[in-house]
């Protein structure tokens, strides 16, 4: 159904196709990985060899870059990404409690995905919306001036937290 759920066989053709588009570009690796992730929702381990071949690197170098940057993911993620801000302003305005309660609501830890693949919970160093602290993002929507009672209804807008 959902493209993020096609975990069984990552579409190697699509990956090859992306790789070929970057063939002539200087220093393509990071932009290329970003595009693969944009397409598939994550970077499947099977993609590493074709990417390495296409960019003239060793697979270990590609893997090294993937694991270095926080934004690259090697496992499928949920349909909705919840990003709780752990910036300074949020921290002093109760951000820790917000994270605690979101964790309780979703039943997952930081970096975890609900079993129904509906939510992935992440934290970010700072969303840069400090004037709305404490804040979080779900997909591309911002939610600010959060208080624990608001959280449940916000999450419910995106479907049931995988019970």
């Amino acid at each position: 159904m959902d493209k993020h759920q096609e975990t069984a066989e990552p579409d190697l053709k699509r990956i090859e196709e992306i790789v070929s588009r970057y063939r002539d570009q200087k220093w393509p690796l990071i932009s290329l990985l970003q595009e693969v992730q944009e397409e598939l929702g994550y970077i499947p381990p099977e993609a590493i060899r074709p990417i390495a071949r296409g960019t003239g690197l060793f697979p270990a170098q590609v893997q090294g870059v993937i694991s270095f940057y926080e934004q690259f993911h090697t496992t499928p993620r949920g349909k909705n990404i919840v990003k709780v801000c752990r910036g300074t302003a949020c921290h002093v305005r109760g951000g820790r409690t917000i994270l605690k309660i979101v964790k309780q609501n979703l039943g997952v830890e930081e970096g975890g995905t609900t079993p129904d693949m509906n939510f992935t919970l992440e934290t970010v160093p700072c969303l840069g919306t400090c004037f709305l602290a404490p804040s979080m993002m779900v997909n591309k929507d911002y939610f600010g001036k959060l208080a624990p009672p608001k959280l449940k209804s916000i999450l419910q807008q995106y479907g049931s937290p995988g019970e």
Binding site: R86, G87, T88, A89, H91, P125, C126, G128, T129, C130
Partner: peptide
């Protein structure tokens, strides 16, 4: 690459 928590002026 403005990364400091609490800084958003470059953005």
């Amino acid at each position: 690459d403005e990364g400091d928590p609490g800084a958003f002026m470059d953005r």
